[in-house]
Amino acid sequence: MKPVLCLALVVTTMLIMSALCPPQTLAQVPPRFYWKTLSDADAVPLIVTSMSGNSNPFDRAHTVTPGGKVDGLMALTGYAHTFSLFDRSAMAAIILPMGRISGDVTVAGRTYSQSTNGFGDPMLEFDINLFGPRAQKNIPDMLRYEPGLSIDLLADLAVPIGEYNSSQPLNLGQNRWYGRVGMPVIWQIGPWVPGRRTTVELLPAVWILGTNNNYVGQTLKSEPMFQLDAHLTRDFTERFWGSLDAAYYSGGQASINGVQGKTLNNFGAGITLGYHLNDNLNLTFGYKSTINDNAPGDLRMDSFMVSLVYGWHKILEGSRRLKGEG
């Protein structure tokens, strides 16, 4: 591969991975999401997820409705930008969910059979690196970059302006503020060479959830929920990679008018495959499912995701012009 083409591929790979997609169904953060790239890179994702289970997939608290059955199709789009802050790598993103859900759920002794569609609550995300290599501001920085052990500080905030109908329990908007604080960790194993990269990635986080004062005429409260995401990722070729994914959820006990539900204590597992179609486009397939979900009060959900991400950077566009001149 020519040096210019190799440089373009590396830039685009890290750009796309650093802005792949938002927290999503099962709140499972995709692998390589917090990889670092050059400052002033941009990306626009389109992610489509099909899911089913006993919880509203647009509800980050994963409030379980025992015996319920919910099916949904979620599409997400948005914009992400990387930059340098205090000489550390940082990223800001905004994500807009949309789609449809339908199902049968029981709330306060009443069973609802319904369907709805529209827009969910937009989410803002900010991430900054605390420990690890400093921000990549130019080509020499990028060529020298290896993550080694990298630790970030992450904050998300959802704005409750999505579509909401207080007469039904399944909604795309949640009628309450919520967000999370986490610390993404990347541990590089072996050489940092395209086609040979291996990482172990962890994300411990706590979701903080506000109160919904009009949940089908009831008051819905949720305790904080702890979540741990883990990934083992590996390059198969310079363009093709895969990951084994796992997640753990704890806490998040919901109460409706003071009647408490079950505390989450669930595990999830999945697999992700990614392929770089060209210097700007990345295609990803993923499947995730809860695994200890036999009891009626256990969280039960599975999802299949397809994502297409378009990323760009002025260095990448410049390398194309150089290639044309050659």
Rank of each mutant, 00 (worst) to 15 (best):
P194G: 04
I161W: 01
S167E: 09
Q168I: 04
I151G: 09
Y178V: 06
N175I: 02
W192V: 12
P194W: 10
A158E: 03
A158I: 00
R197A: 06
W187L: 15
G182Q: 12
T198D: 03
G190L: 03
L154W: 07
A205G: 02
Q168A: 02
S166A: 10
L170A: 01
I189F: 13
Q188W: 02
M183W: 13
I161A: 05
L170S: 02
V159D: 00
N175H: 14
Y164C: 04
T198E: 09
D156R: 12
L153E: 02
P160G: 00
L203V: 11
L157K: 11
Q188R: 14
I189Q: 09
L170K: 02
N171H: 08
G190E: 05
P160T: 00
G179V: 07
S167Y: 04
N175E: 06
D152I: 01
P191Q: 15
S166C: 02
V200G: 05
R197W: 04
I208Y: 15
V193S: 05
G182K: 11
I208A: 14
I189A: 07
P184M: 05
L172V: 07
P204L: 14
S167N: 12
S150N: 12
V159G: 00
R176D: 06
L170W: 03
V206G: 05
L154E: 15
Y164K: 03
P184Q: 09
I208N: 12
V159H: 01
G179W: 10
R176M: 04
G195K: 06
T199V: 06
V193Y: 13
V206M: 12
R176V: 03
G162C: 09
V185K: 04
D152P: 04
V185E: 01
I151R: 09
L209W: 06
N165H: 12
P160E: 01
R197Q: 09
L172G: 04
W207K: 13
L203I: 05
L202G: 10
L157A: 14
Y164L: 02
W207Q: 11
T199F: 05
L153G: 11
N175C: 03
L202N: 11
L170Q: 03
P184L: 14
G179H: 02
P184K: 07
G182D: 11
W187A: 13
Q168G: 04
G173I: 00
G179Y: 10
R196S: 15
Q174I: 00
A205R: 11
P160V: 00
G195S: 08
W177G: 05
G173L: 04
N165R: 11
W207L: 15
L149H: 10
M183V: 15
N175K: 01
V200F: 14
L209V: 13
R176Q: 09
W192M: 07
G162A: 10
L153W: 13
P169Q: 06
E163L: 12
L154T: 08
L172P: 05
W177E: 03
R176C: 02
G190C: 11
